[in-house]
Computed example of a mutant assay.
Amino acid sequence: MTKTTRVTKLLQKVQEGSKEAYDELFPLIYKELKRIAYSKLKKERDDITLSETALVHEVYMKIVDQDSLAAESKSHFMAIAARCMREILIDHARAKKREKRGGSQRDITFIDELMEAHHQAEELIDIDAKLKELAQLNERLAKVVELRFFGKLPIYQVAQVLDVSKSTVKRDWDKARGWLYKELKEG
């Protein structure tokens, strides 16, 4: 049985309510999640010894806390993980921004060391805001950005998740990047 098939079967068991399937699923996708986290965090700072591990654990805890997991395949699960990574990084960036504005209350997370400089948090918040605007204009373009930028999914997996062709994903990716570049540059 291939790893992808095994992950899909475990996801079906998770949907049926099996907590044991969660425990078996995590080690199977751990390295891939860690690779995605490392790829994303590599842009954030140079010395990321444990940060990607912490981000993966945050993602796993967030997924486990959901009442139901509606992932039909490994690609779909990775898309859900990408969305969770985005939410965690954005929450962390907002906390850094609050801290800069004198907020004395501090959220405790496993990834307190992710953002080294304030401007990185600002940029991430700006990207998130523009991504929300893009979603109002074209939800599929926003999903492509989320899956490619935050999830680091390859074109073929994005196509599987969104149930479109690879060429459609490539066109959407080009359009979305162009729109975001223009919007962020103007802002």
Results as ranks from 00 to 15, higher is better:
residue 54 A to S: 13
residue 81 A to S: 05
residue 103 G to A: 12
residue 151 G to H: 00
residue 187 G to K: 11
residue 92 H to T: 14
residue 121 A to E: 00
residue 139 E to N: 14
residue 147 L to A: 08
residue 58 E to S: 06
residue 111 I to S: 04
residue 50 L to W: 09
residue 30 Y to P: 01
residue 172 D to Y: 13
residue 26 F to V: 03
residue 41 L to F: 01
residue 74 K to R: 12
residue 180 L to M: 13
residue 165 S to K: 10
residue 76 H to W: 05
residue 133 E to L: 12
residue 25 L to H: 04
residue 168 T to V: 13
residue 63 I to K: 08
residue 95 A to H: 10
residue 181 Y to T: 08
residue 103 G to R: 12
residue 170 K to F: 05
residue 18 S to F: 03
residue 50 L to C: 10
residue 76 H to S: 07
residue 48 I to R: 15
residue 49 T to S: 07
residue 76 H to A: 09
residue 149 F to C: 00
residue 102 G to H: 00
residue 118 H to P: 14
residue 64 V to Q: 00
residue 137 L to F: 10
residue 70 A to S: 11
residue 108 I to V: 15
residue 48 I to C: 09
residue 146 E to D: 03
residue 48 I to T: 10
residue 21 A to S: 10
residue 180 L to W: 03
residue 16 E to M: 13
residue 156 Y to W: 03
residue 121 A to C: 02
residue 65 D to S: 15
residue 29 I to A: 10
residue 55 L to Y: 05
residue 105 Q to W: 09
residue 92 H to F: 08
residue 83 R to F: 11
residue 71 A to V: 02
residue 125 I to H: 06
residue 3 K to P: 00
residue 70 A to L: 07
residue 73 S to L: 01
residue 119 H to D: 12
residue 103 G to Y: 10
residue 27 P to A: 07
residue 12 Q to T: 14
residue 141 L to R: 08
residue 62 K to V: 02
residue 116 E to Q: 14
residue 74 K to L: 09
residue 120 Q to D: 15
residue 164 V to F: 01
residue 60 Y to I: 13
residue 54 A to Y: 15
residue 103 G to H: 11
residue 117 A to G: 05
residue 117 A to F: 14
residue 135 A to L: 03
residue 20 E to D: 14
residue 19 K to P: 08
residue 80 I to V: 08
residue 134 L to K: 04
residue 139 E to W: 09
residue 104 S to P: 05
residue 77 F to M: 12
residue 71 A to D: 07
residue 78 M to I: 00
residue 63 I to H: 02
residue 157 Q to D: 09
residue 55 L to G: 02
residue 182 K to A: 11
residue 38 Y to F: 03
residue 55 L to C: 01
residue 41 L to G: 09
residue 149 F to H: 08
residue 10 L to N: 02
residue 36 I to P: 01
residue 160 Q to V: 02
residue 144 V to D: 00
residue 89 L to H: 06
residue 104 S to M: 14
residue 162 L to V: 02
residue 167 S to A: 06
residue 35 R to P: 00
residue 105 Q to C: 09
residue 108 I to F: 08
residue 79 A to Y: 11
residue 108 I to W: 04
residue 59 V to C: 05
residue 120 Q to N: 10
residue 124 L to C: 08
residue 141 L to T: 02
residue 99 E to K: 15
residue 113 E to I: 05
residue 181 Y to S: 11
residue 23 D to K: 06
residue 127 I to L: 11
residue 143 K to D: 07
residue 152 K to R: 05
residue 177 R to Y: 04
residue 150 F to V: 01
residue 86 R to D: 01
residue 132 K to R: 14
residue 29 I to H: 07
residue 163 D to T: 04
residue 128 D to Q: 05
residue 32 E to Q: 03
residue 134 L to N: 09
residue 97 K to V: 15
residue 113 E to T: 13
residue 112 D to H: 11
residue 28 L to D: 06
residue 128 D to S: 12
residue 174 D to L: 10
residue 38 Y to E: 13
residue 104 S to R: 15
residue 52 E to M: 11
residue 46 D to W: 03
residue 57 H to Y: 07
residue 180 L to P: 03
residue 25 L to T: 05
residue 165 S to H: 06
residue 87 E to K: 13
residue 73 S to A: 05
